[in-house]
Each structure stands twice: as structure tokens, then as C-alpha cells.
């Protein structure tokens, strides 16, 4: 029994009190303590202790990656990646994770390369005093100064690329329909996996679906004469459908770039609705989506209403009658692009 404890102790005990293991243990201890403190909203104690835990973790890792054995193993093609590991921890501590998930926040990504470059350059500013062995500040040699400048600039460039990625994500959140036309021509961006169905990425489809709903609420079940009047006055009547559909769209900056119009394309009352993208287009032709709705009359034999005695109209007047009502049947939205390529 004692042997087991001795072994555990031998394994756990840091070789020296001043070592990276001590710092890592302190960090684990702080994390455990922080977990035990009260979960009440201000959480001041928890925050202080967990911050201490992070600081110990960062310092411990920093120390660890600069251990000679570890330093040798952490080299990729002569490049020592230790500073970037330490930099990553510093950035996660400073900027946290994105909406509490496992992904670090955008700021953490963007600031990771320059902070790592600073971590990388710190040893160049420090020299050990030959007599007292204590670290003292020193100005780097000209060769090192040049290296520091180049490493810092290269890392700033990498963080600009990270920023560009997040910028593109912002654009796609504000203008999602850009994806519908594909980025094959772009000199800047590339989709890792081009989606199979591009059309569904366009919010024009949503717009047309909303318009279909609005159209049905306008025409379905209306007397046929009224429907025909509506269709002949399409230019005056359609804006209501457009506004109703527009109101149903989720609010994104891109909405300003969509327009919707309609025309009757056959005598059997095929109404073609067209959602037109007024933003930049991948081709010279304008990009638009269409949806065709057939508006027809359905004959409905009204059930004998005279059985309803609570009806206010006198039963005798509402004898059996045939009414023709409007019905709307719509196809799926389509675009010229969605046709199979020859």
C-alpha cells in the first residue's frame, strides 16, 4: 500500500519547486477551487480564482514549451511552434470563446498571430546576467531586430487573413443570396464543398414562397368575377402581394436588393411571379427566379344552407346554387441557372 502511494507521490511531485509542473498544479488547483465557489450571479471570487488559474496555465505552458527536450520536439521544419501554443492560450483567456461554445471568439483568432509573435520575440530582449544569472533587458542584435520585424509583419498579415474570413462571414450573413450564384469566378474566396442545390441558397425562393402565400390569401375562395377583376388590374393589385411577402421575409440588409413583379403569361391565367436580384451578378444577364401559378375556377356546389336555422338569411332565398371560386396552384421556384446544363 505504501509503495503505491510512494509511486504516485514520485510521479506527482515536481522535480523542483520552481518548475512548470508546479504552475500546472496551481492552475488545476485554481480551476477546482473556482468550481467550488458559489455560482451566485456576481461570481467575483470565481472570476478572480479562474483568472489566476488561466495565468498559471499560461505561465506553466510557456515554461513547458521552452524546456529543451520539448522545444526540440515542437519544431516543424526548423520552426519552433511553442510561442503560437502559448499565444493561443493567451488569446482564449483574453477574448474568450464565441457565444460560449468551443470555438474561440473572432477577436481571439485575429489577435492570435501577433500575440504569438510577441511571445516569440520576448527571449530576444532578455539576456542572463553573467554574474548573478538573473535576467536583464538587452537590445536585440541587428539580425534579431530584422527577424523580429519580419516575424511580426508576417503574423500581422496572417491575422489580416483571419479578419478577411470573418469579414466574408459578415457579408454572407447580410447578403446570403450571393451564394446562390456560386463563387467559381472569384479571385478571393472558395467554397470548400460547393453545395448541390444552389437555388435553395437564394432568398429569392423564400420571397416567392411568401408571395405565393400572399397571393393565395388574396384570391383563394374569392368569387371568380372578383378574381378576374383582380387579374385585369394586376398592376394596381400586385403591390399589396409584394408588400405582404416582403413583410414576411426575415430582416436582412439584402432585402433592399430584391424586387418582385408579376405578369399573366397565358389566357388560362398563368401568373408568373419573378423575383429579381438587383445586386451584383456573376453573369452579365440579370439574375432572377420565377414561380408560375395557375389561377383557375373551381365550381363549388354550396351545401343547402337552409338546414342552418340559426342563419340570419331567410332559408328560402338561399336555395341550392353553384358558385365558382378562385383557386391558386403554384409550381416550385426556378431560375435559369437551375436548369440542367447541356
Amino acid at each position: 500500500m505504501r509503495d503505491i502511494f510512494d509511486q504516485i507521490r514520485k510521479r506527482m511531485q515536481p522535480p523542483q519547486w520552481a518548475s512548470w509542473q508546479t504552475l500546472i498544479f496551481l492552475s488545476i488547483f485554481s480551476a477546482a477551487t473556482a468550481a467550488l465557489t458559489s455560482q451566485a450571479p456576481p461570481q467575483i471570487a470565481e472570476r478572480i480564482i479562474s483568472s489566476l488559474g488561466w495565468v498559471f496555465l499560461i505561465l506553466g505552458t510557456w515554461w513547458f514549451v521552452y524546456e529543451p527536450d520539448v522545444k526540440k520536439k515542437l519544431k516543424i521544419y526548423e520552426l519552433f511552434i511553442g510561442p503560437w501554443i502559448v499565444g493561443a492560450l493567451i488569446c482564449i483567456y483574453l477574448f474568450g470563446t464565441w457565444e460560449g461554445r468551443a470555438i474561440p471568439a473572432p477577436t481571439a483568432f485575429v489577435s492570435w498571430p501577433p500575440i504569438s509573435a510577441i511571445v516569440w520575440s520576448i527571449p530576444k530582449f532578455i539576456q542572463s546576467d553573467p554574474k548573478t544569472k538573473s535576467p536583464i533587458y538587452t537590445t536585440p542584435t541587428p539580425a534579431n531586430r530584422q527577424n523580429i520585424i519580419l516575424v511580426l509583419l508576417a503574423n500581422l498579415l496572417i491575422s489580416c487573413w483571419f479578419q478577411l474570413y470573418f469579414e466574408v462571414q459578415d457579408w454572407l450573413a447580410e447578403y446570403p443570396s450571393f451564394r446562390a450564384q456560386g463563387f467559381e469566378q472569384s479571385a478571393f474566396v472558395r467554397e470548400l464543398q460547393p453545395p448541390e442545390k444552389r437555388l435553395e441558397l437564394s432568398r429569392g425562393v423564400d420571397y416567392l414562397d411568401a408571395a405565393e402565400k400572399a397571393l393565395k390569401s388574396q384570391l383563394e375562395g374569392k368569387p371568380w368575377a372578383e378574381v378576374e377583376r383582380w387579374l385585369s388590374n394586376l398592376d394596381q393589385e400586385f403591390p399589396t402581394v409584394r408588400d405582404e411577402a416582403f413583410a414576411q421575409l426575415s430582416r436582412v440588409a439584402e432585402n433592399q436588393l430584391w424586387n418582385l413583379n408579376a405578369r399573366v403569361i397565358s389566357d388560362a391565367y398563368d401568373l408568373e411571379m419573378r423575383a429579381i436580384w438587383q445586386g451584383p451578378s456573376a453573369r452579365t444577364a440579370e439574375y432572377s427566379l420565377t414561380k408560375t401559378c395557375r389561377i383557375s375556377q373551381a365550381r363549388q356546389v354550396s351545401t343547402p344552407e337552409q338546414l342552418k336555422f340559426n342563419s340570419p338569411t331567410p332559408p328560402a332565398l338561399s336555395a341550392q346554387q353553384i358558385r365558382s371560386l378562385g383557386t391558386v396552384q403554384c409550381g416550385a421556384a426556378s431560375s435559369p441557372d437551375s436548369l440542367p446544363q447541356p
Binding site: 498579415l157 474570413y165 466574408v168 454572407l172 478571393f188 474566396v189 472558395r190 467554397e191 470548400l192 464543398q193
Partner: peptide, 15 residues
């Protein structure tokens, strides 16, 4: 929120 649209071509050309 985060899509797989990456500025890979920009990085390639810039390098």
C-alpha cells in the same frame, strides 16, 4: 453562422 466560404484564393494569390 460560420460558413465554409474561405478566402483561400486571396491567400494563395497574396503569397
Amino acid at each position: 453562422m460560420f460558413t465554409d466560404v474561405l478566402p483561400l484564393r486571396a491567400i494563395l494569390f497574396q503569397l
